[in-house]
């Protein structure tokens, strides 16, 4: 499959994520949208890693080209998990304070 398809799919997922973060009011759904953005990047990285490998392999010789992309995906997954665990803890605290996970309630800080 040409690489453009992967880029189009990942960009679409990323844009859906951005729109979701900007428009949704439920904190949990905002979180899901952030996960969507991170996973769009994961897809992109895996596709590029495969592409670089194929390019290097076509030029001959055994190669390690493209391993960095796949390694990066693991790091992103680990960090996303850590981020969500801290984030959910903050959402729980928010729920205790205002009995809602609606981000519209976050409007107390002003001059």
């Amino acid at each position: 499959m040409p690489i453009q398809y992967y880029i189009a799919l990942a960009s679409a997922l990323f844009c859906i994520g951005v729109v979701g973060v900007l428009t949704r009011r439920n904190a949990i759904i905002v979180f899901m949208c952030i996960e969507l953005m991170l996973n769009a990047v994961n897809l992109l990285l895996v596709a590029f890693s495969k592409m670089h490998y194929a390019k290097a392999a076509a030029a001959g010789a055994v190669t390690t080209a493209g391993t960095e992309g796949q390694l990066f995906v693991f790091f992103i997954m680990v960090v996303a998990a850590a981020e969500v665990s801290v984030g959910l803890a903050i959402i729980v605290m928010m729920y205790r304070n205002v009995h809602s996970v609606d981000v519209n309630f976050l409007n107390r800080l002003k001059n």
Binding site: F14, I34, V41, G87, N97, R108
Partner: peptide, 21 residues
């Protein structure tokens, strides 16, 4: 404090996604 944490969390996570892209 929770409000500030939540705001930073959402925006920082989103900006990290931009960085990664």
């Amino acid at each position: 404090a929770v409000e500030a944490g939540m705001k930073y969390l959402v925006l920082a996570a989103m900006s990290s996604a931009f960085l990664l892209f």
